[in-house]
Design a protein around this nucleic acid. Structure first.
Length: 1116
RNA sequence: GCGGAAGUGGCGUAAUUGGUAGCCGCACCAGACUUAGGAUCUGGCGCCGCGAGGCGUGGGGGUUCGAGUCCCUUCUUCCGCACCA
């Protein structure tokens, strides 16, 4: 049979799916290898040929690793929350879930027909509640954590609370908001719960704060810095403005240093690491305080006067504290909070005019305008702390409010911007280094010795910077400071199609919903637009409110008054509905014990008190934390805020007493501080009580009405039966993608985001392939979340992706036809071939690349492509119409999209896979050009033919291969190993061609060679290889796990080598010389050769260089 | 402006530690087989030159017996950042 790729590929794709050939086991004696692709956003356009490039490379790698005996995890899923589906929903009213579902179906069909070896049983979708339940859960962990700088890791917020209760705010070294309060332990305890929560929010790793955000009005949402490019949204290209809003943020800045350091430990492309370093933007410098001189005037704006009069200084950030003696003025940003207070009445008009002008300039104009010098003098002066000089304070928009302190010390001799400013406004310029050249521009040199610089005169840079910082610290006028350019990441989006934030509001304060309430499912809305009042789309959801009563927590839901079941039959029949619920709650509580509960349980379990203790046991409408039914003793643990619920507790105790239980209470802190003491107290109490078997309790039927508030336990936020507003913004697109690789490890786990065992086994991603466009988004956020989860011991690796490869972008290659323009300037229906356009007046038009081959227009198809082209006239060259070419982004509007479906239809998936690899180095960006695909197709047919005779019958010989045949085989065995190891897939494809060309020349159809060839080629062209593999008599489906052939160097050993003989470095001829000869003998042999003698022309060589097995060079 | 990557035939590219520059394809040319060819096979194919030979890895310079590869300098292209103090 001829090579029938269509049948073969269909057959094996079905086989792999039916037999789950690529389903990965979590338990294996093989070493693990995790090959991950960046999962796609399923867009409506489907895949074009650029998308699979990285997937093909990773698939080859994954298949290769399987052959090499690894247990390979190679999963795929969809990053299915996002803007396009939502924009489509806004336009059409179609629910984004439906659009997304349809797009995923298209993607899946397209992916399947390329023959990837994904383990689809582990598929994830970020928009599925099973998945985003855990995205929300991780959010909750972030909310419940703070960053302890002393431990250099995230820790539980409980630990912070404990510290506050014991020592107040002293001794806390946290990454937190700037304006945290100072308080003693007693002051903390005296605070209302509200105030405590407000303070804690300043420490949480995800927090709500009034922040300046990138607001995109057209999209109706805020955007993160990495989603804004040059003042426009990355998606859609809409203008973005700065706006102050209450927003969720992630305290990624806490990890700035670790994110920076971690880069040194991972095998990523250097440009990408550099981009992250840039984005993090660490600069080591100092904060310096400049006192305000003679601050005495009044001003109608008194907002900051208070702080100014008590603390009259401006703080600047500088990386060049050594240049402080060259400071000749200060510049503060126009938005700086002290501007109004510093402005003297004389200067008021100037300053206000300048601010008005600066405000009008958009972000873009301000950037474009970087070279124009502008500013205004405030009229105030500051004192240089090191020399007491009085210097002017200016405002200018080259100083950014958002970086450092929003103020700089201007050193015109060393900083070009300061230099230009000083020249423009005639401010002094003082040289401070002996070799500084400052006639025409600033000289930021660090060489030379300091002059005009007081106590650092004569020092070098290294000495000076240390001396200045020390002096500033001594004076109390400054300190060393590391600054980062990276800002905390805005985490909320005012959009519909994203993960709901698992938070509700009581007063102004956010509270987490309960963990067992997850997932908080995205509600239905009538429209996907903001409300009239400008609230996010989720505000449209009807009855979407948080009801604590509906929240199964430590206590079941109850109304205001409740007919307590003082019937004496609390266990089975109190209320069948409640009883079911209660059992569920208890189970949930047992799975998620608090720290204190867990600590105590370790002491109480297994009868360590001498009595059987149950935990989270349902009793009537309550759940007891711990109970001994034998003694009727209930042990309750209370959180710190529990004092609010005294009334409820009393009622609860009353009911429990009624049943014959004794209730004792401890606080969580008591347990955590001294568990043994609590244990002793419990034991003592148990011993003192009489036995009373309450397991079969049946008291007199004595019903009484008891007032019960809805909480009997630790329900956070309880206290009334009101409903609360949920957070209305959703999470950004990067939330789900910041941890998804862990879900693949254990994709169907309902109890955890992934089991401890799965994480311990798979650990991290060994190879990650994806585009560099995610450098400062996904790849940074993923590292951040990973480090956070490591801190909480949820995962084991500090870095998630050990090795990363960026596949290059596939650009479009547009073709053009040239329409003739007549004398009147009108377009005609005549088209001129590209080589002739200089002779005519033409205008280029995009033409569909799919009707052009090797830049020659298919005229027949062209005429059919549009009705108006049907009678078009074409001016040809050499009988052909040659199209023009340009490289552009691949897009529908440019008619340059090449769809993999068409190519698979025509050449098959194996050809497409190999051709995409053959295009060039994986990491290199290149335009798509279908021109060479025939060559790869021919290769596969040639390979197929090796196994068939002239009548196209399968025909293989069992003869012993020749030495030359073995040599071809072992060359390719080694070559492919080396190439795959360095991700050089293009070179291995050409080596396959060489091997098959050689074997064709040998007319080799020997099993001893071809069977191994099938294995080696199978990662690249799996379908054809599977087919040949069973034809060779092997069991179907076993090829994927066959053993990669072993390289044997013996087959490559040569007796002779054709030495290039060069004279003065120029190769003149070749000589076959035995490889057993040593350099001295080679030299003699070469010089004796007649051909060489001819070149020498009788001259005696000055020197002869012989490199054994490489070259002979004769120097004349 | 700063940082990074890269410049090799008509085109995509190859040359793993400095050791024969142009492998493998595409396109093109010639030929064979054919009713035909968008099939297959054979040969050619960096540039100049009839040839001998010479010149060739963006340009210039250097190190070396020998440089596409290392160093300096310069130009060009692409990518990222951009008034970051």
């Amino acid at each position: 049979m001829d090579y029938q790729f269509k049948d073969i590929e269909k057959k094996w794709q079905k086989f792999w799916a039916d037999h789950q050939t690529f389903k990965t086991e979590d338990k294996s004696t093989k070493p693990k290898y995790y090959v991950l692709d960046m999962f796609p956003y399923p867009s409506g356009a489907g895949l074009h040929v650029g998308h699979p490039l990285g997937y093909i490379a990773s698939d080859i790698f994954a298949r290769y690793k399987r052959l090499k005996g690894f247990n390979v995890l190679h999963p795929m899923g969809y990053d299915s929350f996002g803007l396009p589906a939502e924009q489509y929903a806004i336009q059409t009213g179609q629910h984004p879930a439906i659009t997304t579902e349809a797009n995923i179906a298209t993607y899946r069909r397209q992916l399947d027909q390329i023959g990837f070896s994904f383990d689809w049983s582990r598929e994830v979708r970020t928009s599925s509640p099973d998945f985003y339940k855990w995205t929300q859960w991780i959010f909750m962990q972030l909310f419940n954590s703070w960053y302890n700088k002393d431990a250099d890791k995230a820790e539980s917020i409980e630990k912070l609370v404990k510290h506050f209760e014991q020592s107040g705010s002293t001794g806390i070294n946290a990454v937190c908001d700037d304006e945290t309060a100072s308080f003693t332990a007693d002051e903390w305890k005296a605070m209302s719960n509200q105030d405590q929560q407000k303070e804690l929010l300043k420490y949480r790793l995800t927090y709500l704060r009034q922040s300046t955000v990138n607001w995109c009005a057209a999209l109706g949402t805020v955007l993160a810095n990495d989603e804004v490019k040059d003042g426009f949204s990355e998606r859609g290209g809409y203008p973005v403005e700065q706006k102050k809003m209450m927003q969720w943020s992630m305290r990624i800045t806490a990890y700035a240093d670790r994110l920076l350091k971690g880069l040194d430990s991972i095998d990523w492309p250097e440009p990408l690491k550099e981009m992250q370093r840039n984005w993090i933007g660490k600069s080591v410098g100092a904060l310096v305080r400049f006192q305000i001189s003679d601050f005495r005037f009044e001003n109608e704006d008194k907002t900051n006067l208070q702080s100014l009069t008590s603390n009259p200084y401006i703080e600047v950030f500088t990386t060049r504290a050594d240049t402080i003696f060259g400071t000749t003025f200060l510049v503060i940003a126009p938005e700086h909070e002290l501007v109004a207070s510093l402005t003297t009445p004389d200067q008021k008009a100037d300053i206000e005019a300048y601010i008005a002008m600066a405000k009008k300039k958009s972000e873009l104009e301000r950037m474009a305008d970087a070279k124009t010098v502008s500013g205004a003098f405030t009229g105030s002066y500051a004192i240089n702390p090191v020399n007491g000089e009085k210097i002017q304070i200016w405002i200018a928009d080259y100083v950014l409010a958002g970086y450092g302190t929003g103020a700089v010390m201007a050193v015109p001799s060393g900083d070009q911007r300061d230099y230009l400013f000083a020249k423009h406004y005639n401010l002094p310029i003082i040289p401070i280094i002996d070799i500084q050249k400052i006639d025409t521009e600033a000289d930021p040199t660090k060489e030379g010795r300091y002059i005009n610089s007081g106590f650092i005169n004569g020092l070098t840079y290294k000495e000076a910077i240390v001396a200045v910082v020390a002096k500033l610290e001594e004076l109390g006028a400054g300190k060393a400071k590391v600054n980062f350019r990276m800002r905390d990441a805005i985490f909320g989006r005012q959009r519909y199609w994203g993960e709901p934030v698992p938070v509700y509001f009581k007063g102004d304060l956010p509270y987490l919903i309960s963990e067992n309430e997850l997932p908080l499912v995205l509600p239905e809305v009538d429209k996907y637009l903001p409300t009239e009042s400008g609230e996010p789309p989720l505000a449209r959801a009807e009855n979407w409110k948080y009801k604590p009563t509906a929240a199964p927590s430590k206590s079941p839901p109850v109304g205001e008054t409740y007919q307590a079941h003082l019937t004496g039959s609390y266990r089975e029949t109190a209320d069948p509905i409640y009883y079911e619920q209660l059992k569920n709650f208890s189970a949930a509580n047992r799975n998620q014990p608090t720290e204190a509960e867990n600590t105590l349980w370790q002491l109480l379990r297994k009868d360590q008190t001498g009595y059987k203790i149950r935990r989270q046991h349902a009793i009537d409408i309550y759940i007891a934390d711990f109970v001994s039914l034998q003694k009727g003793l209930i042990i309750e643990l209370d959180g710190h805020h529990h004092k609010l619920n005294k009334e409820a507790d009393d009622a609860r105790t009353e009911v429990l007493n009624h049943f014959g239980f004794t209730v004792i209470r401890f606080t969580n802190d008591e347990v955590l501080q001294n568990p043994q003491r609590i244990f002793d107290q419990i034991k003592e109490k148990l011993n003192s009580l009489e036995n009373r078997d309450l397991t079969k309790f049946s008291d007199a039927t004595n019903t009484s009405e008891v007032k019960v508030s809805p909480t009997g336990g630790d329900l956070e936020g309880a206290g009334n039966a009101d409903t609360y507003e949920y957070e209305l913004s959703t999470m950004p697109g990067w939330a789900g993608s910041s941890w998804y690789w862990y879900r693949y490890m254990d994709a169907h786990n309902d109890e955890e985001f992934a089991s401890k065992e799965a994480i311990a086994y798979w650990k991290d991603v060994d190879l990650y392939i994806g585009g560099s466009e995610h450098a400062t988004g996904h790849l940074l956020y993923s590292r951040f979340w990973n480090k956070f989860m490591k801190d909480l011991s949820l995962v084991v690796a500090e870095e998630p992706f050990k090795k990363l490869i960026n596949q290059g972008m596939i650009q479009g290659r547009s073709n053009f036809v040239y329409r003739l323009i007549d004398e009147m300037g009108r377009g005609t229906n005549t088209f001129v071939s590209h080589g002739l356009i200089k002779q005519f007046k033409t205008s280029p038009l995009h033409v569909d690349v799919n009707i052009v081959e090797n830049d020659v227009l298919n005229i027949e198809k062209f005429k059919k492509s549009r009705p108006e082209y049907a009678d078009a006239e074409l001016i040809l060259e050499n009988g052909k119409y040659i199209c023009g070419v340009e490289i552009e982004k691949m897009s529908k509007s440019k008619f340059n999209v090449v769809n993999p479906d068409d190519l698979i239809e025509r050449y098959g998936a194996d050809t497409l896979r190999m051709y995409e690899m053959f295009l060039g180095p994986l990491e290199q960006s290149k335009p798509w050009n279908t021109n060479g695909i025939e060559g790869v197709f021919k290769f596969l047919r040639k390979f197929w033919r090796l196994f068939h005779n002239e009548a196209w019958e399968f025909s293989i010989s069992n003869d012993e291969p020749t030495k030359a045949e073995f040599k071809s085989l072992h060359k390719i065995i080694r070559k492919v190993e080396e190439d795959i190891d360095r991700f050089s897939f293009n070179t291995s494809v050409s080596s396959f061609m060489i091997a098959v060309n050689e074997l064709t020349d040998f007319k080799c159809n020997k099993r001893g060679i071809l069977q191994d060839m099938v294995i080696i080629l199978s990662p690249y062209a799996p379908h054809i290889c599977e087919e040949l593999w069973i034809q060779l008599g092997n069991e179907a489906g076993t090829l994927s796990y066959a053993a990669y052939p072993k390289f044997n160097a013996a087959y490559l050993i040569e007796d002779e080598f054709s030495y290039p003989i060069s004279i003065n470095g120029k190769t003149k001829m070749n000589l076959n010389i035995s490889l057993s000869l040593e350099p001295k003998d080679i030299e003699a042999h070469v010089l004796a050769d007649a051909g060489v003698q001819k070149y020498l022309g009788g001259a005696t060589p000055k020197k002869v260089i012989v490199v054994k097995g490489r070259i002979v060079n004769i120097v004349l």
